[in-house]
Design a protein around this nucleic acid. Sequence first.
DNA 1: ATCGGCCACTGAACCGGTTTAGTTAAGTTT
DNA 2: AAACTTAACTAAACCGGTTCAGTGGCCGAT
Lengths: 345, 345
Amino acid sequence: MAVTISDVARAAGVSKGAVSYALNGQAGVSEDTRRRILSTAAALGWTPSLRARSLSSSKAYALGLVVARDPKLLGSDPFFPTFIAGIETTLADRGYSLVLTVATKPGAEEASYRRLAHEGRVDGVILSDMRTDDSRIALLLELGLAAVTLNRPNTLSPFPAVCMDDTEGISQAVQHLVDLGHTRIAHVGGSQHYIHGLSRRNAWANTLDLNGLHHDLFIEADFGALEGVAATADLLARTNPPTAIVYANDIMATAGQAYAQQHGLRIPDDLSITGYDNTEYAQYLNPALTSIGSDPLLWGSAAAQVLLNQLEGTHDGDDVVLPAPGLITRGSTAAPQGRSTPGSS
Amino acid sequence: MAVTISDVARAAGVSKGAVSYALNGQAGVSEDTRRRILSTAAALGWTPSLRARSLSSSKAYALGLVVARDPKLLGSDPFFPTFIAGIETTLADRGYSLVLTVATKPGAEEASYRRLAHEGRVDGVILSDMRTDDSRIALLLELGLAAVTLNRPNTLSPFPAVCMDDTEGISQAVQHLVDLGHTRIAHVGGSQHYIHGLSRRNAWANTLDLNGLHHDLFIEADFGALEGVAATADLLARTNPPTAIVYANDIMATAGQAYAQQHGLRIPDDLSITGYDNTEYAQYLNPALTSIGSDPLLWGSAAAQVLLNQLEGTHDGDDVVLPAPGLITRGSTAAPQGRSTPGSS
DNA sequence: ATCGGCCACTGAACCGGTTTAGTTAAGTTT
DNA sequence: AAACTTAACTAAACCGGTTCAGTGGCCGAT
């Protein structure tokens, strides 16, 4: 069927080994011979067999991504598709492929990593949604898989990290609200089990601190619409409810906004709202959602690059820091109209 | 490193070939010997080397999925993540993996298929988002890849199809609106380049026909929020605007709803709206969106099964027809309040 | 002149399975 | 009892690369 390295060797009048050396740019053949081999290979239309190469070099030439999500939350998250597109842009250029796994049940995630490693499907994996005391780090070490993490985990990790600071955007959002005159600014956070859930909460709390405001209006949710609504209901039912809510993502913000409106609150007059992710639909909500625009495409591309460099031994081991995403102000935030802000018109 | 078939052969006191026969359930070994070989293999903890098996059997033990989307539309589509999760549930059980490719640039899609085939990364691919006169069918035939299509394409296709009728849901939506008293029911369709864009439009038109109503209020959009807004603006600016709009997906419906509200229309009083996909956030919009609940998880799982059966020669060649998704009625649809429906309270 | 060292290259082993051809022993046929 | 078939198994080729151990020839050093 396809033309093999032996065909090339025969046509060029050399041995298989010489062809291999020539094609891989290794020493062992003269420049003349190398050129001759390369041109006959090109003439015959030779392309390397991934399978043969995989077997003899013990490499898969593929990276893995395990997405662990509740199936209900999976579809609504705009992050992964774009993130994966970013990974692809890097992989395609380098002859690698992406093996994607989705783990919806609790134990399935570890099983997925084990399978990828055991079957030798991938040479390394990209770790997203880092968690506190993330057990995957030890697991990957045990499995001997290379990896790159999205942001630096809180535990000691031998893997390089590709970082995109998410505290900057939240700080901007809180400061924006403070500048508008809000004093009771709540935060509906994501699961504090996640590093980014934690860091966003801390950014919110710290920025309030800096402005001399309390940061007691916090509720933890799961990044899903349902819990976003519950958290919003809880906050709004308090005797001294917030005039602004900073949500940890657009999904919860959207759900919270709808809930508030259904209960007679005008947004942004009675309640200001901010999201995170700058989802495509954010600008089409009523009012349009103030959000923070992360760049999953860039993140994916950078993560794949670092991991590939790592695999090829050309990575220096340092973390890569990407530009921090900033606030995109839209109609869902404004000065509070209630009694609490005498300065507002 | 890992235990190989030779180790098992040595330990069991037989040849490599015998071990291979025993493990693959082929004839050539007695039952006694087979049991002995299997138990020593288990005792040694042998697992097959995917790479070796791939090389000698010329199979990849992987399926491919090429997602061709404008990056802007990618993140907002809730279909793919869940669909992929469905694929996974089947693949994991059968020892296969999923190689995912995202093609964002025009020529990249064909290149992706070519690469998957040429490198032998996959044994077959799942074709989603079928288009009219879909050029991928001829391409895959040329490349010699197996495939399964989501719904039957309009051209002759040798590949089995896994079908989930999307006209039923649209018909239900239109009939629901007719029953509420609407007479001017518009449709903001998806790109008519797609089979499902076309079929949803036809379902809308046919159902209006059946009720003796005109179906002239149609605008084609691209399934994205931006064009959904433009289409809505166009429709509402007409001298005799619709009292209801059936959108081809939730994203456009959401965007259209926000646009209408911003322009002073009350929903559902002045304008009823339906979506498609039953996105997670649909129920948290204000008002909650009446939508049609497809089942991407089931679809993915079924498609993978058919393709695997096809590869293993156990598929009968028939198309598989899944249950048609139905309408989920929520707050965005109601009887029209204007002059056109005397019967409404 | 001779030895050592290096370059360019060959032949073969190897990765870990599958598969084919061949061998042996037992059983069946006439 | 000789000839034939078949089951059970082995040895070796094969998939298509990579890599190691040689090998011969050319060169410079002594």
